[in-house]
Design a protein around this nucleic acid. Structure first.
Length: 193
DNA sequence: CAAGAGATCATCT
DNA sequence: GATGATCTCTTGA
């Protein structure tokens, strides 16, 4: 069943952990794509230097201050889109970055959108999965309680979760050491990092 | 296989 | 005008 708003309103670390093993569903005219989430990262609040919202409330970060359960999608390095899901209460800026999924459905569509690559590397990184799922800034602000993009709980149990520091945030000072990246242990579909 | 460089643009100073 | 929550290709051993 589709995750409802109250799921996303939980503390960000809870959401990040619990998203592992859930299914990301993306509807599109090319057909639907589905992936099992295997890697996430939490970005929490105004203090977290790695969190975009630590720079304050701006046009770009406004979405993170809003209702939980909405998508925060942005472009990085001029090439890659990142998919985040807003968490917690209004006016507390936080989100979970979806870093990798295991391709489940629509694999042929994903291969067309990227290249004829191995299933293993189709969605093994935040930029890759956005490309495979046709996610771009047009989906910024989309409601995960809607029908274009949402997450399903298939009541599946996870083997084991491992927490590590987050990737690619060397500029974040002491915040870069926080173990706020979560992966399913021994899963081959995670990004390398 | 590991390491490094280059690609390219929205956002904020 | 600088700088990224990255990816891919090229290089060299």
């Amino acid at each position: 069943m589709k995750l409802a708003r109250d799921f996303y309103q939980q503390p960000t670390l809870e959401v990040a952990r619990q998203l592992l093993g859930k299914y990301l569903v993306r509807k599109h005219t090319d057909g639907a794509t589905v992936g099992r989430i295997v890697e996430t990262e939490a970005y929490i609040g105004p203090e977290d230097k790695a969190c975009h919202a630590s720079k304050g409330r701006t046009a770009r970060t406004e979405i993170m201050f809003g209702d939980a359960g909405h998508a925060y999608v942005y472009l990085i390095y001029g090439f890659h889109h990142m998919l985040n899901i807003v968490t917690e209460k209004n006016d507390f800026p936080a989100a979970v970055l979806i870093r990798a999924v295991e391709p489940i459905k629509g694999i042929d569509v994903m291969q067309t959108r990227r290249r004829a690559t191995q299933p293993r590397t189709l969605c093994s990184g935040p930029g890759k999965l956005c490309q495979a799922f046709a996610i771009d800034r047009g989906l910024n602000g989309a409601d995960l309680c809607g029908s274009l993009l949402y997450i399903e709980d298939r009541a599946e149990s996870i083997a084991k979760i491992v927490a590590t520091p987050r990737i690619g945030i060397d500029y974040a000072g002491r915040w870069k050491h926080k173990p706020w990246r979560f992966v399913i242990k021994d899963n081959v579909f995670v990004s390398k990092g």
